[in-house]
């Protein structure tokens, strides 16, 4: 059993294996932003209410402000930076759908919205309107009034293929 102020842990981040010393008392949100420079994940409330900090942990949307950095040992984490296919300049279909539907206004909520949408579509390829609303209930938006966001999720569901989703499926348990 390891015990440390900066435990060295293994995890996967955006599909890449990592072995890093992480500050034990930091949240995953702070670690991503301040240590790894991945500032796409936004810091809103830091108490689990706004969803701006949403990342995928083993394929499931979680608030990175409520995860301690050392808790990601052996986990697979995806942030918004990993969503765009590597190398190219292309966007992921979920990102395209958000743009297409004018679902991005100030954009602060968008990375969290996109991650939650991917989490939903991993579990449910054709969500109905009430399932979409329920899935996004933990992501607040101060600008759009949500209508365009719900539309974007519907459009994304219509556009994505299994290829677009496969990378995020690693480490998903049956539940």
């Amino acid at each position: 059993m390891s015990s440390d102020l900066t435990p060295k842990i293994k995890f996967r981040l955006n599909g890449i294996d990592m072995e890093k010393e992480v500050p034990a008392g930091w949240t995953l949100l702070r670690y991503l932003r301040e240590e790894l420079g991945l500032t796409g994940t936004k810091c809103g409330c830091e108490i689990g209410e706004c969803g701006a900090c949403t990342v995928l942990m083993n394929g499931k949307p979680v608030n990175s402000c409520l995860v301690m950095a050392p808790q990601i040992e052996n986990a697979s984490i995806w942030t918004i930076e990993g969503v765009t296919p590597p190398g190219g300049t292309a966007l992921h279909p979920v990102q395209k759908a958000f743009i297409e539907c004018d679902a991005v206004h100030c954009g602060f909520c968008t990375p969290g919205m996109v991650m939650t949408t991917i989490g939903l579509l991993l579990q449910n390829k054709k969500p109905d309107n009430s399932q979409i609303k329920q899935a996004l209930a933990g992501n607040l938006c101060r600008c759009t009034g949500y209508i365009q966001i719900f539309e974007a999720v519907r459009l994304a569901a219509a556009m994505i293929s299994e290829n677009d989703m496969r990378p995020f499926r690693e480490n998903i348990s049956e539940n």
Partner: peptide, 29 residues
């Protein structure tokens, strides 16, 4: 500064918890 203990089985976890200053974290919410 926080020290973390990351046990991989229950016996280790219970041994660590014998120290009263150790706080268990499950989901952390």
């Amino acid at each position: 500064a926080v020290e973390t203990l990351n046990p991989t089985n229950l016996a280790q976890a219970l041994k660590a918890k014998a120290n009263k200053n150790v706080v268990a974290v499950a989901g952390g919410t």
